[in-house]
Simulated assay, not measured.
Amino acid sequence: MQQKLKIAIQKSGRLYEDSVKLLKDCGIDVKNGINKLKTEAENFPLEIYFLRDDDIPQYVEDAVADIGIVGENVLYEKNKKVDVVEKLGFGKCRLSIAVSRGEQYSGPAYLQGKRIATTYPVLVQRFLDEQGIRAEIHEISGSVEIAPGIGLAEAIVDLVSSGSTLFMNGLKEVETILRSEAVLVRNKSLDEEQLKLLDRFLFRIRAVKKAKNNKYVLMNAPTDKLQDIIALLPGMKSPTVLPLAEPGWSSVHSVISENQFWDIIEQLKAAGAQGILVVPIEKMIL
């Protein structure tokens, strides 16, 4: 019987859709029926468990699941003995301190002797210890942002994406204590066969990630400007150059990082490139 790799992902909430999309982008066919907590991929040796995000680190530590996708905020709060094997690039947020908009926040020392409401007492206590501050932590679940308004606390520590929820509750973000994204974690005691399956899975994940971070670019270049244009292109090795039917022109193909994209495109235009076509990359194997 073929061994399967068991992966735990969030059954609902912030990371669920992106986790399932990642599996599908990796060519793994996942069918998740309504309220189904376990399924198997049809074309890859993978069992998928749909669990509460707070439980995933524990399940991976206990080897109920071999690997899991979880936010760093949950991972470090639960402090379980698992290994992080890959940052996944989605589910980005920050764990931040917020106070009432009328307060004058002067830095971490502001929290001395204050009451702090949070769902993340471990991370908050670690931050306070690092800063040499003593404060009273109130652990609550859900609706943390209302705590100052009802007199429960003078500050909160909560996940922030856009900050709109804080604004609507009369709060302002004043300090970030953790930047978080989804990560792939693994049990520390995988056997040789499980590690081979994990390597196959990681190969697919990294190809998908690489594709998302790069663009395939095609352009027409006058022959007398060709070397100047090629010099601007980073490429994986070197750009592809093909002669066009019209004399004195070539077609140049290359890959450009998303982070460098607009700066390089402007330079290519200035160097004489024309008819620049940008195409998304589905997978990228190096």
Rank of each mutant, 00 (worst) to 15 (best):
190 L>H: 01
162 S>Y: 07
168 M>K: 12
181 E>S: 13
209 K>R: 13
239 P>W: 03
157 V>R: 12
224 D>M: 06
162 S>C: 05
152 L>D: 06
160 V>Y: 06
154 E>A: 01
157 V>Q: 09
238 S>Y: 05
171 L>P: 15
243 P>W: 08
203 F>N: 11
154 E>R: 00
159 L>Q: 13
152 L>I: 02
215 K>T: 02
254 S>K: 01
193 E>P: 02
172 K>I: 08
150 I>H: 08
207 A>K: 15
229 I>A: 03
192 E>C: 00
221 A>C: 15
156 I>R: 04
202 L>A: 04
248 G>E: 05
206 R>E: 13
166 L>Q: 11
231 A>W: 06
245 A>L: 07
194 Q>V: 00
150 I>G: 06
245 A>S: 13
222 P>S: 07
250 S>A: 04
224 D>L: 06
170 G>M: 03
201 F>Y: 14
168 M>V: 00
157 V>I: 14
247 P>N: 09
217 V>K: 08
202 L>H: 04
163 G>H: 12
169 N>M: 11
217 V>C: 11
221 A>E: 11
192 E>W: 03
221 A>M: 08
233 L>P: 04
224 D>H: 10
205 I>V: 15
187 N>V: 05
164 S>W: 02
254 S>E: 10
246 E>D: 07
185 V>N: 11
239 P>G: 02
251 S>I: 00
209 K>D: 11
163 G>C: 03
176 T>D: 15
164 S>P: 07
234 P>Y: 12
214 N>F: 11
196 K>T: 05
152 L>Q: 09
165 T>I: 08
227 Q>W: 10
149 G>I: 01
216 Y>W: 14
158 D>H: 08
238 S>L: 05
252 V>L: 10
224 D>N: 12
208 V>K: 08
211 A>T: 14
246 E>R: 13
181 E>R: 03
255 V>C: 14
151 G>E: 06
227 Q>Y: 08
222 P>Y: 13
149 G>L: 10
209 K>E: 15
155 A>R: 00
184 L>P: 05
201 F>N: 07
242 L>R: 02
235 G>D: 14
235 G>W: 01
201 F>R: 11
230 I>Y: 13
206 R>A: 04
235 G>P: 05
198 L>P: 15
147 A>W: 05
176 T>N: 14
206 R>C: 04
158 D>V: 05
153 A>P: 14
179 R>P: 05
156 I>D: 05
229 I>S: 07
242 L>Y: 03
175 E>Q: 15
236 M>G: 08
174 V>H: 12
145 E>V: 02
203 F>C: 03
197 L>F: 11
186 R>C: 13
249 W>L: 15
153 A>W: 15
198 L>E: 15
186 R>Y: 00
232 L>N: 02
